[in-house]
Design a binder for these strands. Structure first.
Lengths: 252, 252
DNA sequence: AAGTGGTCTAGACCACAAT
DNA sequence: TTGTGGTCTAGACCACTTC
């Protein structure tokens, strides 16, 4: 009687299925506590590791979240809407508004872990910026924390020969941000390309974004082009997938 | 000596870190076999479940893939590039080309699990289509398999009062596909909105797309608008995140 | 203090893949 | 046939949260 008792499915999957069904039926709402390891051991007559494995399935699916010493809870989602195209319209940053003001209405946005430095671009960045190997660039990295929850980490690279003497090299880039400064320097971005990937986070990323198990990250690489086609910025963003829905609006 | 021996990290994490470092250093390339459970038990002097847990970490990160009876292997990635905006330009489907011909150059594309039926739209679909509850709609679902690997599952809904007597209700929609037929009916899409989310797959989705552990799905909901703003199609797509990079190109 | 999840051990049988 | 990963048991100690 070690494994299946006539059925094809492993015990831990059957237990996970039962819990998942209960969640979807609304028996457990967002934030509710699920039956714990001890409960499952008793009701299903299985060993600790088996009950654990069942709860692990739900966590890996992103449906549940374990809190040490407290229990396993149904996760709640309330993602931000990020309008990929509107938010970069010239009027937005031209008017001195932050690109962030719209999507963080009524919520407390903190930008921390800010780091601004000049360095020699590595191969990957040179490729993206379309500059020769070893070119000097400014690197700006920062983390966005919304209502106490880290939601995004951004790493931006700009060629030094363009931004060297501007506020882009400062922690505070001033009204309208980096793109307003680039415009003043005669390198206003006129075209953008965003590449989107999704994958599971590294342990490092999971920590920086306080990600629960079973939470992928969305990776966006935005390339900004000035008139004439020169690349003026490459911005790599890593987002908590549970905190975002991306939106792109365009004509046929 | 049950858990840590002076260090803060769990053993299984240290083992996983060592393997991850080795992979990133190129000691194990894509497709290579990693040390198995028995190897790890011997070299790190741990129990089976601990070695197992270490390998589980890498699988959940999407870096490795277990093949029963064979071993654990480093995963390989070669994503398709999906150009979100260009691919929907009027010229593409207006000229009778399939929207798919571009991105599947030189590769064998099979469309299977095709299902076309009329039904009463549920609340979620009514909402998305902007029609009253209970409206009749045509539902088209199909799966795309590229070189033997399922990469995408699509479920499209269109209002019956628009498409009822057209080839949209047939398995084969004819040259140019659904959008060409809509154009002939006087409801050519002129505007699109794509909403993008990422999450871990349900067990069902994982099976339909043959997803390895640690592989998120990308969920795209595309809404097509005709002149005047009427919603003519809502298409929900579920993509294997390991098979895709999405690209959006637009002007400031 | 009691209960929870996190880690770990040392066994076991199974289905499957490679040889 | 041998080795692999998949499942499962029955214990154990720990750190943490809640009361």
């Amino acid at each position: 009687m070690t494994s299946q008792g006539g059925t094809r499915q492993p015990k831990y999957q059957r237990i996970a299925d039962a819990l998942r069904t209960a969640i979807q039926a609304g028996e457990y709402g967002p934030g509710d506590r699920l039956p714990g390891e001890n409960d499952l051991m008793a009701t299903y007559e299985v060993a600790r590791m088996t009950a654990r494995q069942a709860l692990g399935v739900l966590q890996n699916e992103g449906l549940a979240e374990a809190r040490k010493g407290a229990g396993v809870f149904v996760r709640a989602f309330k993602p931000l809407r990020r309008r990929g195209i509107e938010r970069l319209a010239r009027e937005q940053w031209g008017a001195g508004r932050s690109i962030w003001s719209e999507e963080s209405e009524e919520r407390e946005l903190v930008v921390d872990q800010i780091d601004v430095r000049e360095e020699e671009a590595d191969g990957r960045v040179c490729d993206a910026l379309d500059v020769p190997a070893g070119t000097r660039v400014w690197a700006r990295s920062r983390r966005f924390v919304l209502d106490g929850k880290p939601v995004l980490f951004a790493l931006s690279h700009l060629p030094s020969d363009i931004v060297a003497d501007s506020a882009v090299t400062q922690v505070d880039t001033g009204p309208g941000g980096t793109y307003a400064r680039l415009a003043e320097l005669g390198f206003a971005p006129v075209h953008f390309r965003e590449e989107i990937r999704s994958r599971m986070p590294s342990a490092d990323e999971a920590e920086r974004l306080s990600l629960a198990m079973g939470t992928p990250v969305i990776h966006i690489v935005r390339t900004a082009f000035a008139q004439g086609g020169r690349v003026v910025e490459v911005n790599e963003m890593t987002l908590d997938s549970a905190s975002y829905v991306l939106e792109y609006d365009f004509d046929a």
